[in-house]
Design a protein around this nucleic acid. Structure first.
Length: 427
DNA sequence: TGTCCACTGGAAGGGAGGGCTT
DNA sequence: AAGCCCTCCCTTCCAGTGGACA
């Protein structure tokens, strides 16, 4: 390459995709103009929310269904349409969407709602510092100043309740009693309804005035969704005919998760694009399945705190030893005590003090929750009660994640990979 | 049948860090 | 600057637990 040739040239040529017309249509954040197989839910939501257009507060709504059943996208779609209609007829309606996985304390929820109405940066409510009660009364003033109907959608509301209790829901469900001009309604979105057991009876009855269920999609329905989005996302004739049915079938097997189906299709397209191929084939989807599996594990580990990573590394190291002794990957499991010992050794190695066993069990529970580990409690009689902990993801993926971590890469620096990225758990 | 093991997991609280009001 | 509040991460304490074993 001559020195005057710009090294970005070849990327520039490739930059204009021959595969994607509009990649965004396959992202979770995209709200499409059509939502196949969700007419019933859209109509139900719209009929409950329609009173907002007359200035009355809609009843609170609980929306539930498993991951990828279209809850979020449907609620966002209906809220968008509600605001459009309100603007058209001059009604005072504002909707606010809050993801409680990010905004997960009472204070932050109140702050987020309030800041939605504050345009001046200096006047916005700070992320911490004020008493929660004060933010609550500020919010009342702000809402009354606005004077219309406010619909707040709390996505992953179950997480909020598990983490911070139901105090915030109590505050929000009662706020209308203190408002003179404005009215506030809540839409709670949850994966399952187990969390309502944690709610105060009054909160429960108020929050669940209306419930709307989102059943999982079947393969045929997923296909319709993918076709719709593919029309927006891909150039014509880029997808081979088998691609969409294959994506739909693979995701239908995993509880009909539309989000995953869209991820698969997008990733398959990206793989084809990166390989400079003119068409997306079934083979790309198969690669995409592997890729997504690995990305999920790598991303989950990457975002863990140091001690969480240390637990994963302890699990990795101990499993690897067992593997070398000839044990089958599926049979490798440890008790809390065994893994805690290994974890303490890892901390010694890193030169950081280990957390207590109590805190350690919190990490194990969390890693179980996010699917990196499998943990179940067993009783071994006079040998006590403990948790049996197994890996829930491929050792190779875990190694890949830790090898690229600045704190843990030293463990791998001298050695070549002990593993190839083969799936040990494939049988 | 009672004992006892090796934990589990809830509750309370400490302290560092960030930010507010007065 | 002082006093207060919130969040996050962690420790300490401790009652509770299921089932093998004597």
């Amino acid at each position: 390459m001559s020195s005057d040739e710009n090294p970005f040239n070849k990327f520039l040529k490739r930059r204009r995709s021959r595969i994607f017309k509009n990649r965004e249509a396959l992202l979770h954040t995209y709200t499409p103009e059509r939502l196949p197989h969700r007419d019933d839910q859209i109509n139900e939501l719209a009929s409950i929310l329609s009173v907002a257009l007359d200035g009355s507060p809609p009843k609170n709504i609980m929306v539930y269904g498993i991951t990828g059943s279209g809850k979020t996208v449907t609620v966002r779609y209906v809220l968008k349409k509600l605001e459009e209609m309100a603007a058209e007829i001059g009604a005072h309606v504002q909707s606010i969407y809050i993801n409680c996985e990010v905004v997960d304390t009472s204070y932050r929820v109140l702050q987020t709602i309030a800041n939605n109405f504050i345009k001046q940066w200096e006047e916005r409510i700070p992320p911490t510092g004020l008493p929660t009660d004060e933010v609550y009364s500020k919010l009342q003033n702000i809402l009354d100043e606005y004077g219309g109907v406010v619909v707040v959608a709390l996505d992953e509301i179950d997480r909020l309740v598990k983490k911070s209790g139901d105090n915030i829901l109590y505050m929000l469900t009662r706020i209308n009693e203190y408002l003179n001009r404005a009215k506030l309604s809540i839409i709670g979105i949850a994966n399952d309804l187990k969390f309502v057991d944690l709610l105060d009876v009054r909160v429960r009855s108020s929050l669940m005035h209306e419930t709307i269920v989102f059943p999982p999609y079947n393969a045929k329905q997923l296909e319709d969704i993918l076709k719709d989005r593919a029309n927006i996302a891909f150039y014509e004739d880029v997808l081979e005919p088998a691609v969409i049915p294959f994506c739909a079938a693979a995701s239908a097997k995993e509880h009909g998760d539309a989000r995953r189906a869209l991820d698969l299709l997008r990733t398959a397209g990206e793989i084809a694009e990166r390989n400079n191929e003119p068409k997306v084939r079934e083979g790309h989807v198969k690669l995409a399945i592997k890729r997504l599996e690995m990305d999920t594990v790598v991303e989950a580990i990457r975002t863990l705190p140091t001690h969480g990573k240390a637990v994963m590394y302890a699990m990795y190291r101990k499993s690897l030893r067992e593997l070398k002794l000839g044990k089958r990957a599926n049979d490798i499991e440890f008790t809390t005590g065994e893994l805690y010992q290994e974890y303490s050794d890892v901390c010694d190695f890193l030169g950081i003090p280990p957390v207590t066993q109590r805190r350690f069990t919190d990490f194990v529970s969390y890693l179980d929750e996010i699917g990196l580990l499998n943990a179940r409690i067993i009783s071994r009689g006079r040998y006590g009660r403990t948790k049996i902990i197994k890996l829930a993801s491929d050792l190779g993926y875990i190694e890949e994640a830790l090898r690229n971590d600045p704190e843990f890469s030293a463990f791998f620096a001298k050695r070549q990979s002990q593993l190839y990225l083969t799936n040990y758990f494939e049988d």
